[in-house]
């Protein structure tokens, strides 16, 4: 079938090289918050934490691969906002700035860590355990977590920012200090690696997902 008919006439081909400035909507009152932060307003700091801590913590947790150091990294990101609010150029993009700082702090932390042994998976040889949906789900969760942990750090970070936290590709590119094309390359490679981690049981997984 002719794709022109499928998509309708006059295809305005999207240009990935020129995406809009930001895909995240501006944070209402972000400029005001930044001004108040510059004046060392503690209530502004509390407001910043209330608005953004959960997301910053999730980013740290997922990039680090678990709770260890996640809280510390998240706190450090907010301490940077408090001690040097002048580094935040745009009050409407405080969230993106925090995401970038948390990502880089987490990546730095990973570089300093010693490699750890992979997490143990639950034993599924027991047929009764295999029949338990909850156990199978937990086992799959552990396998996916292990595959995520095995990804190169920047691939995992790209996946966390774009897939899990919904950052636009421009924001993610700024957070990682790369181009939009590089972000897409990181994402594609991450997904390919995840698929390969389950390559030997791909069909089995398709069936399993229909059952879970």
């Amino acid at each position: 079938m002719d794709l022109a008919l499928l998509w309708g006439a006059a295809l305005p081909l999207a240009e990935p090289e020129t995406p809009p400035k930001t895909e995240a909507g501006p944070s209402r009152g972000g400029d005001d918050l930044l001004v108040r932060l510059s004046r060392r307003d503690e209530r502004a700091f509390a407001e910043l934490i209330a608005r953004h801590f959960d997301r910053v913590y999730r980013i740290a947790w997922r990039v680090l691969g678990g709770p260890a150091d996640a809280e510390d990294v998240a706190q450090e990101a907010f301490l940077k906002a408090w001690s040097a609010p002048g580094q935040i150029r745009d009050g409407r993009a405080i969230g993106a700035w925090l995401a970038r700082v948390a990502t880089n702090l987490a990546l730095d932390r990973l570089r300093r860590r010693r490699p750890e042994s992979p997490p143990e998976l639950p034993d599924l040889t027991d047929p009764h355990a295999a029949a338990d949906r909850g156990v199978r789900r937990a086992a799959l969760e552990a396998e996916v977590a292990k595959a995520m942990a095995a990804l190169p750090d920047r691939q995992r970070a790209a996946l966390v920012l774009v897939h899990f936290e919904g950052l636009g590709n421009l924001e993610a590119a700024e957070a990682l200090g790369v181009s939009v094309e590089a972000v897409e390359s990181l994402l594609a490679r991450a997904r390919r690696s995840l698929k390969q981690a389950f390559a030997d049981r791909w069909r089995e997984l398709v069936a399993e997902f229909s059952d879970l």
Binding site: Y57, R137, E141, V144, A147, F164, L194, F198, L205
Partner: peptide
């Protein structure tokens, strides 16, 4: 697969 992971 990614949806299986818990939300921290």
């Amino acid at each position: 697969l990614l949806a299986v992971l818990p939300v921290p």
